[in-house]
Design a binder for these strands. Structure first.
Length: 595
RNA sequence: GGGGUCGUAGCUCAAUUGGUUAGAGUACCAGACUGUCGAUCUGGGUGUUGCGGGUUCAAGUCCCGUCGACCCCGCCA
């Protein structure tokens, strides 16, 4: 005999008269003294079960003693509800189960927070995480996990159709000091040596191309020991892929198809393909960021022409020093609190290295209120109005300094202004590719470092600049961006061992270090490496955006808190002496007592 | 490492200028009720105001420290 014949979301009018047995959680008990109603819940839905003492006194007794979240088994018969008792808000609202017996499979304490989505949305997240198994009983959390499953399943199907092979790569691997901080795992068999958990399967997937696997993908867990954010967890999931004998165009086409498939699976409008593209330079100039949010305007406008030869010293000095004067028009925000503009936003500009933040508030009658307008000539005002399409009610924000300082500041102000104005449509999905990233940038110490990673191939026509002006060299790298979030990125890799060695040299890596860290890769390149490239998409971020959530924690079953703690399992935790002895570790600190 | 918001009943929150016995909704408990479905009605407060110290006649409120959650900067090749 099965424990249940149907699920709690399954029964309809067609089953009227059928004997059924249901299992689930007590969602609510409504005790009328005579009749008792139990709403029985499982993953699939809720079914109303009615207990009438005239049907079974024993069942009625048990039913009225049930409490929320008891796990019960109910058997009875499906019955059509009278027309005036149909509940149009329930999928199973046309029927109920006339119950003849009920078994309490397990009692339950009163939950520490309400499990109805209505009451649970404002519950402290730390409490939800401590009792995550209860939090995950909630419909909205189950929907999120279900969407995640469907998106990943759709990705698997898509890649399978495209002749990709799913291959697992090691989780115990080698530390790579560049990039993010590694999670380390001590080796018991090799005293004093450590594995690292992978930040990404980068080198393994390249080696799979050299193995001739040609098209690889993996839903890969990755680990980075860095500080957390709403969209960053120390362990996260990438949809990782790599292809041989391809150009940038081939990879973008495959990912375009994946995006379309996933959007369809999530029930969102499928974007027209190919997805739009812009260069990194254009993204920086128009949006002040390499991950532009295209859901609203307020784009950055260059004012070098407008203020050429201006009397306003701040702008004149910036332009004379090879800098820039740029602005955004925060449309309609002339009444933004002056405190926000002069303290929060100006503070942000100063953090970004600017001297301050100039602004104009355009009153409804068209007059410009601003500390700086008095320095502008009539011609400048006219040109400025035209350049920024200034209308009554607008707020114009200026930045004047070197472009690489001005642009990021205006980019961040644009996002704040857009949010403040409420013009960022939450239900829109605006994808864009960003291509042509610089290959190198200068580190704080002035050293040349890879923007992406040291295996990234340069754009061929920029090769002559490699030694003379390395910072002008563009990479064959690309990011896929959705609504201002970097979803993923990748590149065409270097497949020539001599060129790869030259790259390490340009990056200033000592030969000994190259040998220690990358010998396997350089050697593999010498045994017949195909041209190849790939990309990785942040699966958590993708699902978060598709689900309309604000945090990736909402689409991860068991996420960590901002201090990277698992407050349900209470991890990390102290270990005993013997465990430490086994792995040859001596603690330099006494662990803080656990909470 | 830095900036910010917060911490009061199981949960979500309130508590005037520092002033009586810390309240409300909900949950929970008990009772009533044969058609409810956010059931209803009656009754019940279940509290280490995160923790430690200080100021004061008096602290949920002010000060110092500390712990924790969240958001952001740095960081994330």
């Amino acid at each position: 005999m099965k424990m249940r014949t149907h699920t709690c979301g399954q029964l309809r009018s067609a089953e009227a008269g059928t004997p059924v047995q249901l299992c689930g959680w007590v969602d609510s008990v409504r005790d009328h003294g005579g009749l008792v109603f139990i709403d029985l819940r499982d993953r699939y839905g809720v079914t109303q079960c009615v207990f009438d003492p005239r049907d079974s006194q024993a069942a009625w007794d048990t039913a009225q003693a049930c409490r929320s979240e008891y796990v019960v088994q109910i058997s009875g018969e499906v019955r059509l509800r009278p027309a005036d008792m149909v509940n149009p808000h329930m999928a199973t609202g046309t029927i109920e189960v006339r119950s003849r017996s009920i078994t309490v499979l397990n009692k339950a304490h009163t939950p520490p927070f309400p499990l109805e989505d209505r009451g649970a949305e404002h519950v402290g997240e730390d409490l939800r995480l401590e009792f995550r198994y209860l939090d995950l009983r909630r419909g909205s959390m189950q929907q999120a996990l279900l969407l995640r499953h469907r998106v990943l399943q759709a990705a698997r199907n898509y890649f399978d159709e495209q002749q990709f092979v799913e291959i697992e790569t090691p989780v115990l691997t080698k530390s790579t000091p560049e990039g993010a901080r590694d999670y380390l795992v001590p080796s018991r068999l090799c005293p004093g040596l450590f594995f690292a958990l992978p930040q990404a399967p980068q080198q393994y997937k390249q080696l799979l191309m050299m193995a001739g696997l040609d098209r690889y993908f993996q839903i890969a867990r990755c680990f980075r020991d860095e500080d957390l954010r709403a969209d960053r967890q120390p362990e996260f999931t990438q949809i990782d892929l790599e292809m041989s004998f391809v150009t940038v165009e081939d990879i973008i086409a495959v990912v375009d198809g994946l995006i379309a498939r996933v959007m369809q699976e999530a029930g969102h409008p499928v974007p027209a393909l190919p997805l739009p593209r812009m260069t990194w330079r254009e993204a920086m100039d128009r949006f002040g960021t390499d991950k532009p949010d295209l859901r609203f305007g307020m784009e950055i406008v260059d004012l070098a022409q407008v203020f050429h030869g201006t009397q306003f010293k701040v702008f004149a000095r910036a332009l004379e020093n090879g800098g820039a004067v740029k602005a955004i028009n925060a449309k309609g925000l002339f009444q933004a609190p002056i405190k926000m503009v002069e303290e929060d936003w100006t503070g942000l500009a100063k953090e970004g290295g600017l001297g301050g933040l100039a602004y104009i508030r355009v009153q409804q009658d068209g007059t410009w209120k601003s500390p700086i307008v008095k320095f502008f000539s009539e011609a400048e005002k006219t040109a400025l109005q035209a350049a920024l399409d200034i209308q009554p009610g607008d707020l114009v924000l200026f930045g004047a300094d070197h472009a690489d300082k001005v642009l990021p500041v205006l980019g961040r102000l644009r996002l704040l202004a857009g949010a403040h104005a409420g013009v960022i449509a939450p239900d829109q999905f605006r994808f864009t590719w960003v291509t042509g990233f610089p290959l190198f940038e200068r580190s704080e110490e002035g050293r040349l470092v890879s923007v992406h990673h040291p295996f990234t191939a340069p754009v061929p026509e920029d090769l002559p600049l490699l030694d003379s002006e390395p910072e002008q060299v563009r990479a064959q790298a690309y990011d896929i961006v959705l609504n201002g979030t970097e979803l993923g990125g990748g590149s065409i890799r270097i497949h020539d061992p001599e060129f790869q060695a030259r790259m390490f040299k340009i990056l200033g890596l000592p030969e000994a270090e190259v040998q220690e860290r990358f010998r396997h890769l350089l050697r593999a390149l010498e045994y017949g490496a195909p041209p190849h490239g790939g990309l990785a998409i942040g699966a958590d971020r993708l699902v978060m955006l598709l689900a309309g959530r604000q945090s990736i924690r909402d689409v991860i079953a068991f996420p960590k808190t901002q201090k990277a703690l698992d407050v349900m399992m209470n991890a990390p935790s102290a270990v005993d002496e013997k465990q430490l002895r086994d792995i040859h570790i001596k603690l330099a600190v006494t662990p803080k007592a656990e909470p």
